[in-house]
Nucleic acid binder design. Structure first.
Lengths: 207, 207
DNA sequence: CGTCTATTTGAATGTACTCAAAAGCGGTGG
DNA sequence: CCACCGCTTTTGAGTACATTCAAATAGACG
């Protein structure tokens, strides 16, 4: 079994454990039987990357969509002046990648970097199309997933616009209670669209 | 034929003409044969609303997803202090509604208002599920549509954060050249996340 | 323990806002 | 067809939230 081999390479003793995250996440939207899970597992690959390693750099075509099984991936892009803008922190059970680059097979403008040692499941463009073909339910799965993500992105965008920096920071801490400990301040600042300097001042104000 | 009757009510002489917008838009993603188009037309309804009329108000459940056939729909939400935040202008060929409210059947936080006399095609939740059932291709259609929309929303969000008000205004004019003439300044301001006062000053600076 | 990077702090600045008032514009009724 | 009313846009003056730049301090990693 390919998956077992991959996991052996990664020195993971319990294959089931690491994929449980994925099935739990997928299971919220569609139900997979044993044979479908086998098909799924024949199409995915599991990889591990170290802290600070890159999954994707601007200029490359994004060859895979990834689900984080363990760890955390930060997505960001840069403007002309090397300012970084963090767009997303993907943690356990979240999909990440660059949809635009992936589906259009065009160079990406994003960077994907591991904030910690991270285990991921990945699907190439071809494998993704095979997945849709072999298990059409996955069209539905990703349709619903994208719906939810769009709703979340729009809602985030809205609060970002409607509230000031201090309230956005409060909201961030509520929505991602554990993330603040896992992620350096400057990246949270760039996610909230403020300077690290100012976030530091906000933090002081609170305590 | 139901559709013909509806169109008769709307005093539209050419049914094909008004739906051409829809088929052109859908045709970019999936191909429909004649019988599929018939099925589609048996599920949709066509409505017309006057300028300033509402499709949806905050507190209501969004019962339909709409495609604009002719006209323009503005979506916005309000904060506690009655400030309006415009999230989208839907023009010919665009879908609009409130995805979150529609798919979860929960009260919406958005308002949808016609900027002009507007013709729309609409699908109820039930009809939408029937559409997925009868023509599974539509799972794919909406999956790809949502992908594209997510990419667009994220990209908009990114430029909004990365650029200052003046450059965002420039970009808006490039991306929606005709819209500026169709839509009052104050709504463009609330779309760009600035005050009408400030947008007025920006406009003066340019010319 | 030293080096490199991240965070904190201070001072000055700017972008965009608030509030208030004036001007412009469009629609409606006399 | 003009006059008036209400809503939108413009303009002015003062203000605030958040930034920049620089320097000091704290933390992390080898």
């Amino acid at each position: 079994m390919i998956l077992a081999l991959l996991c052996a390479n990664l020195r993971l003793s319990h294959v089931e454990n690491i994929l449980d995250v994925a099935y739990k996440s997928i299971g919220r939207i569609i139900t997979l039987d044993t044979s479908e899970k086998e098909t799924f597992e024949s199409l995915i690959e599991i990889i591990k990357i170290r802290k600070k390693e890159r999954l994707l750099s601007a200029g490359q075509v994004c060859k895979y969509e990834y689900m984080v099984l363990k760890g955390c991936i930060r997505s960001f892009y840069c403007d002309e002046d090397t300012n970084e803008f963090t767009t997303m922190f993907a943690i356990e059970g979240w999909w990440t990648g660059d949809l635009g680059s992936f589906y259009r097979q065009m160079p990406s403008e994003y960077y994907l970097v591991a904030m910690e040692e991270t285990y991921l499941l990945r699907l190439s463009y071809q494998r993704m199309e095979q997945l849709y073909e072999k298990i059409p339910k996955f069209e539905r799965y990703f349709r619903i997933l994208l719906q939810n993500r769009l709703i979340a992105v729009e809602s985030f965008q809205n609060t970002l616009q409607a509230l000031d920096a201090e309230e956005n920071y409060k909201l961030f801490r509520q929505n991602y209670p554990d993330l603040e400990k896992r992620v350096p301040l400057k990246y949270i600042a760039s996610y909230l669209g403020i300077t690290p300097t100012y976030l530091s001042r906000l933090r002081k104000r609170k305590s």
